[in-house]
Design a protein around this nucleic acid. Structure first.
Lengths: 113, 113
DNA sequence: GTAACATATAAACTTTTATTTATGGATTAC
DNA sequence: GTAATCCATAAATAAAAGTTTATATGTTAC
């Protein structure tokens, strides 16, 4: 197990996922959401970026499933979607045929010069 | 554990890693390497891309650590670096504060409509 | 040494993505 | 209803990344 090989469609989707994470600002957004922030205004203040820019990046993250949005009154609350990150990890494992968990001797293995 | 929060430098590095994977061709390269291919000419034939293009993408993958190159005669053999993918997964876990392994009730949890 | 092969690099060009500025849509307060 | 708030979208511009074509570097064969 671990080796299914991926279809073109799956490859494209995976590529897009990586693209969504290819941005320092977007990673900051994710970190802020992980830290408990939720609505756009708070993020705007915390991250010091313009509202449209933030909105655009949130849209990218939403379209790739890493965050989900929910309207609450006139605010929109964003939160992480952990499942998307797990799927990403799964797909990496399938793509390169390796296990991402620490088995196999990491951190302190034998070093032969 | 799991929540270290990342420095700016680490964020930038992580961003670059995602960028290196933001390409269908590069994912195909990784898949081909996972399937056992190694030298550039074989990849060129398998993937049907020009040699300079392939070389450029391999350079990107090398610079981000996902593959390593080794000169063998006049060929250069590339191979995956599994450690880089594990580090990537670790960093995702740190960034968003979640576990990427299947604990926590995935695939078939309770669904309350 | 020269020729041939395998890969890398550089320069010019094309395409994609990010950022700004301006405007629109949805919701609540009045 | 109007005004105010919160967020999204559109258009224009700027920046980054990918692709091609041409050339250079390093290695083996002779």
């Amino acid at each position: 197990m671990l080796e299914h090989s991926m279809s073109e469609k799956e490859l494209r989707r995976l590529t897009k996922s990586f693209g969504a994470l290819h941005s320092v600002l977007r990673l900051r957004i994710l970190a802020a959401l992980a830290a408990g922030e939720s609505n756009v205004r708070d993020l705007e203040t915390t991250l010091r970026v313009s509202q449209p820019l933030l909105s655009w990046h949130l849209t990218q993250l939403r379209q790739t499933g890493f965050v989900v949005a929910e309207r609450v009154g006139r605010e929109v609350h964003y939160r992480l979607n952990p499942e998307a990150f797990r799927e990403l990890a799964d797909n990496i494992e399938i793509l390169v045929g390796i296990s991402l968990s620490d088995e196999g001797g990491r951190s302190g293995g034998k070093s032969k010069s």
